[in-house]
Amino acid sequence: MADIEEARKTFEQFDADGDGFITAAEWKSAMARMGDFYQTEAVAEAVIAAKDTNADKRLSFDEFWASLNK
């Protein structure tokens, strides 16, 4: 099980605009900052879709947290 405070910090790093959601573009950008320059928009969209329980094409913290605890 993940530590919720660490998860919040990580979520905030991915949520570049601070709106409380991670989009595919933000995911791709965060992955590039971490050294994964090969993450494509399509891959980022697939990652978000796999974790996005309400199908709004973005991750809330609750969805992010749930995905860490599967």
Rank of each mutant, 00 (worst) to 15 (best):
D52F: 04
I4S: 11
A25C: 06
A24Y: 02
A30H: 02
W65P: 08
G20E: 07
A32P: 03
K57V: 07
A30G: 03
F64I: 06
A46N: 12
A24Q: 08
F11M: 02
W65T: 09
E63I: 03
A32K: 06
A16D: 11
E63S: 08
T10G: 04
A30L: 01
D15C: 08
M1W: 06
S29N: 13
R58M: 11
E45A: 11
D52S: 11
V47L: 07
K9W: 02
L68C: 04
A7E: 04
T40F: 07
E5K: 03
W27M: 15
K57E: 14
T23A: 07
L59Y: 02
A30C: 08
T23K: 06
A2Y: 10
I48K: 05
F11H: 05
A32C: 05
T23P: 03
F21P: 00
Q39T: 14
T40C: 09
I22F: 02
A32L: 05
A2F: 10
A46T: 10
K51C: 13
S29Y: 02
A30T: 01
D19T: 13
Y38T: 15
D56N: 15
E12L: 09
V47H: 03
E6N: 09
A25K: 14
A25F: 08
R33G: 10
A16M: 11
D56S: 12
G18A: 08
E12V: 07
D56L: 11
I22V: 15
W27K: 05
T10I: 10
V43F: 06
L68I: 01
A50H: 09
F64N: 02
T40H: 08
M31G: 02
V47N: 06
R33H: 11
D3K: 12
M34R: 05
D62T: 12
M34W: 00
Q39E: 10
F61W: 12
K9C: 05
G18P: 09
I22T: 04
L68K: 03
V43Y: 07
A25S: 14
V47M: 13
R58E: 12
Q39S: 11
A49L: 01
K9G: 13
F61K: 11
A30Y: 00
K70P: 14
D36G: 00
D62F: 04
F21M: 08
K70S: 15
T10A: 12
M34Q: 10
Q39G: 00
E12W: 00
K28C: 12
I48N: 05
G18I: 10
A16H: 12
E12G: 06
N54Y: 04
Q13L: 14
M1A: 13
A16F: 06
F14I: 00
S60F: 07
R58V: 04
R8K: 15
D36Y: 01
V43E: 15
E12C: 09
W65E: 09
A16R: 13
F11L: 03
L59I: 08
Y38Q: 15
A55T: 10
A46P: 00
A49Q: 07
E41L: 13
I4W: 03
T23F: 04
A7M: 09
D62I: 07
G20Y: 06
D15A: 05
D62E: 15
W65H: 13
D62V: 10
K9Y: 01
I22N: 02
F14L: 00
A46E: 14
M31S: 02
F11I: 05
D62R: 12
E45R: 14
A50C: 07
E26R: 05
D3H: 11
E63Y: 04
S67T: 08
